[in-house]
């Protein structure tokens, strides 16, 4: 399995995805500082609840992170799984004496792992920069508490896994339709629904975790269905695969 993941990693050009992850990081970092500065920019506005505490600010960051990295994950999944298994590459892929399930496992682990790690890395760096900056030159009027930081990092962990899970569910839709765009659109819709729910739970960070379970259950079922489809897939006429 390790060998297959390494091969997938090496044979695909990942530079574009590294650049995309860095771009998302810059955008999210800017938003994090903006969230902290909003109460200063609009001092007369009374509806500033989420921007007045560090838990609120970091939760908003995590919601944006879920949306961004869910789409990022779906793009990766579309490229690594949908394109490879349903395009002309399928002919090559299925000509190797390797179990189809193993190939799919390697791809899913790479997509999920890359997306979760990129999200975690971006979030951790952003939070470290943010909290260090806030302790030196505070933008927010709130005071930094250890529990705010712990909650931020725990939420980041959950949101990273959730974004990866959304990518997997989106992949299921895209794979059924043999379409890269369907994969990405499904991720956008799912991310919007999840973020809408999470927006309601801004002041109850532990509710944040409660969405993770159904998302992961759906991702697991989506994965199981993908394995079933791959197993009985045929490389049909003119390189089009069929189930």
């Amino acid at each position: 399995m390790k060998r297959l993941i390494k091969l997938e990693w090496k044979r695909n050009r990942l530079r574009t995805y590294h650049i995309a992850a860095v771009s998302i990081f810059i955008f999210l970092l800017a938003m994090l500082f903006l969230f902290a500065a909003i109460p200063r920019l609009e001092p007369t506005d009374t509806d500033m609840g989420p921007f007045l505490t560090y838990t609120g600010i970091t939760s908003l960051y995590n919601i944006l992170g879920i949306a961004s990295f869910a789409i990022f994950s779906s793009v990766l999944a579309a490229r690594f799984v949908v394109q490879d298994f349903t395009g002309p590459q399928a002919l090559l892929l299925f000509s190797y004496p390797i179990s189809r399930s193993k190939i799919l496992w390697a791809k899913l682990l790479l997509v999920f792992g890359y997306s979760v790690l990129a999200n975690l890395l971006c979030g951790t760096t952003a939070f470290c920069l943010f909290f260090v900056s806030e302790s030196l030159f505070p933008l927010s009027t709130a005071s930094i508490r250890i529990e705010d930081m712990v909650t931020a990092f725990l939420s980041l962990l959950c949101s990273s896994i959730m974004a990866g899970g959304i990518g997997m569910i989106a992949l299921w839709f895209g794979f059924r339709k043999r379409s890269i765009s369907v994969t990405i659109i499904a991720a956008v819709i799912l991310a919007v629904v999840c973020c809408q729910f999470l927006g309601v739970t801004l002041f109850l960070p532990y509710l944040f975790f409660s969405l993770l379970v159904p998302v992961l259950c759906c991702a697991f079922l989506a994965g199981k269905s993908l394995f079933r489809q791959i197993k009985k897939m045929e490389v049909s006429l003119h390189d089009r695969t069929r189930v």
């Binding site: 002309p88 590459q89 390797i98 003119h238 390189d239």
Partner: peptide, 30 residues
């Protein structure tokens, strides 16, 4: 498949890689 070499329809390659790299990947997968 382990004992067979094949070419079906139009050949598909990893387009951004060189001939040598394509064969290296093929051998690794085989």
């Amino acid at each position: 498949l382990r004992q067979t070499g094949s070419l079906i329809e139009a050949p598909v390659f990893y387009e951004h890689l060189s001939a040598k790299e394509n064969l290296q990947f093929h051998l690794a997968y085989m």
